[in-house]
Design a protein around this nucleic acid. Structure first.
Length: 121
DNA sequence: GTAATGACCAATA
DNA sequence: CTATTGGCCATTA
C-alpha cells in the first residue's frame, strides 16, 4: 500500500508534522512560518509555493487533528493573526485553546496570542 | 463528469 | 478599522 503511491502529499504532511513536533511546550507557530521553513517539494516553483504552502500546512493539520493524537501537537499551530483558525465553539477549537492555556499560553481579550511571549522560530 | 469547500496569506479599496 | 480578491491543491457531494 505504500509502494505504488507517490508520497507527494503525504510526504509533505509528514514534514509539516515533523516540524510541529519540534515546537516546544508553551509556544506557538503560525501556518505561514511553518510554510516558510519547509522546503518546496520537487516540481513546485518557489513563487507558487509561497502562495499554496500555508494552505498545505492547514490541510496537514486537518488530516492529523483528532481527539487522541498525541504524536503531533497540532494545537500549537495558529494563523497569522495569532488566533485559532477553527470555528469558535467547535470541539477542536475549544480543545486547542484549552490545551494551549494548560501549557501556559496567554490569550488576548480578542482570543489572540502574544507572539513576543509565545512565538517560536 | 462538474461544482463546491477548506485549520491560509497578502495586497487593495 | 472592515470587506473583497487572487492564488493553489485535494477531497467530498
Amino acid at each position: 500500500m505504500d509502494i505504488q503511491t507517490p508520497p507527494d502529499r503525504e510526504a509533505y504532511y509528514q514534514t509539516v508534522w515533523d516540524i510541529v513536533r519540534q515546537v516546544p511546550r508553551g509556544q506557538v507557530v503560525t501556518f505561514g512560518q511553518l510554510a516558510a521553513m519547509i522546503p518546496p517539494p520537487p516540481g513546485i516553483e518557489p513563487p507558487a509555493y509561497d502562495r499554496i504552502a500555508p494552505r498545505w500546512v492547514g490541510y496537514a493539520m486537518n488530516a492529523v487533528s483528532g481527539p487522541d493524537e498525541p504524536t503531533v501537537p497540532w494545537h500549537r499551530v495558529i494563523n497569522s493573526k495569532g488566533g485559532i483558525s477553527l470555528p469558535e465553539g467547535s470541539r477542536l477549537a475549544v480543545l486547542q485553546r484549552a490545551r494551549l492555556e494548560a501549557e501556559g499560553v496567554r490569550f488576548n481579550a480578542r482570543g489572540l496570542v502574544d507572539f513576543d511571549a509565545c512565538g517560536w522560530d
